[in-house]
Write a protein that binds this DNA or RNA. Structure first.
Lengths: 156, 156
DNA sequence: CCGCGAACCTAGTCGTTCTAGTTACAAGTG
DNA sequence: CACTTGTAACTAGAACGACTAGGTTCGCGG
C-alpha cells in the first residue's frame, strides 16, 4: 500500500494472490470432506496420520497422536472414544508395552478416507507431474523458501 | 503405492512433499499467532478481513463476516461481543441502512495484527519477488491447477 | 521388591458454534 | 399512506470439543 512496498515486482503479488486462492480452495475441500464424514478437524487428521502409519507397518499409540496433533492426552482419549463409537477405529493391545495401546483404523474407515483424500492426492500428483524438471525445481525452491519464512516469523 | 501410480515422475513427489511441509509451517505460524493473541481461528480471520476492508475504505457489516467466514449470524454476534469486550473492535452506526451495523477495528488491534501478519506478508512478498518472470508464471500456473483440482474433488 | 515415572483413562469445566425464535428496519404494492 | 414481505442483527439454550486435575495400570532401575 505504501510507497515502500512498491519495490516488489508486480508478478510477485500475482503469485501470492494465487497462493491465497489455492489455500482457500484446499481448505474448502477439506471442509467438505469433514462435513460429509461428520467429523471435526482433528478427527480427520488423526485418521490420515493413522492410515499413513499403518501403510508403513508402524504401530500408533494415543501418545503419538497427542504429539502429532498437539492435543492433551485426555483429549485424545475422548477423540478415540468418539472414533471408536463411530466405527472408524479400534483399540488393541500394544505388541511390546503393556501400558500402552495400539490404535488401528477399520477397513471401512480406510476406504472412506482413501475415496476422498486419495482422489485429491492423485489429482495433486497429476498437477505436479506436469512440471518439467526445471519447473519442479523452481516450485520446490519457492515452497521451501515460504516454509522457511513461516518458520522464522514470531519465533525470533 | 500401486504399479499404476509409478508413471508419475519422481520429482512430482518431491514437490508435493515440499508443499505439505509449507502448509504445515504456515499452519504452525498461524497457530502461534492465534495463541499469542489468545484468539480463535475465526476471530483472527475476521480481524484480517476487517483490516483489509478498512484499508480500502469499505464498510464491514456482521452479515459480510458471516458470509466470508461461513458462520451463522448468531455466531457472528457472539464473536463480535467477544472481540468488543477484548477491545479489538467497535460497533457503530451503518451510514445508510439503519437495520445494519458498521464494524470497525480499534487502532490497537490494527497494530497488533499488522505486527505479526504484516511481517509474514512482507516475507512472502520477498520470496515471491525472487522469482523471475518465467518462474512466476510456472508457480502461478501450478497453484492455479492445484486450486482447480481441489475445487473439483468431491464436488462432481 | 519397591518406588518413580510413563501411558492412558475419568470427571468436571470452559469456550465456541449451532438451531430456533424475536425485534427493528427497508422495500415494494395497492 | 397502510400493508405485506424480506432482511439484518440479536437472544436463549443446547451440543460439541478441548483443557485441567486426579486416578489406575504397568515398566524399569535401585
Amino acid at each position: 500500500m505504501t510507497a515502500a512496498e512498491q519495490v516488489t515486482s508486480p508478478h510477485a503479488a500475482e503469485v501470492l494472490r494465487e497462493l491465497r486462492a489455492y489455500r482457500a480452495a484446499e481448505e474448502a475441500m477439506r471442509r467438505r470432506t469433514r462435513d460429509s464424514m461428520k467429523m471435526g478437524e482433528n478427527d480427520l487428521a488423526a485418521l490420515r496420520f493413522l492410515l499413513r502409519a499403518q501403510g508403513q507397518g508402524r504401530v500408533v499409540t494415543p501418545g503419538m497422536l497427542s504429539d502429532h496433533l498437539g492435543m492433551k492426552s485426555a483429549s485424545v482419549t475422548v477423540m478415540l472414544d468418539r472414533l471408536t463409537k463411530s466405527g472408524h477405529l479400534t483399540r488393541g493391545a500394544h505388541p511390546t508395552d503393556r501400558r500402552s495401546i495400539a490404535v488401528s483404523a477399520t477397513p471401512g474407515s480406510d476406504d472412506e478416507v482413501r475415496a476422498t483424500l486419495g482422489e485429491m492426492h492423485r489429482r495433486m500428483m497429476g498437477v505436479a507431474s506436469h512440471l518439467d524438471q526445471r519447473g519442479a525445481e523452481i516450485v520446490r525452491r519457492f515452497l521451501l523458501d515460504l516454509a522457511t519464512a513461516a518458520d522464522e516469523v514470531a519465533t525470533a
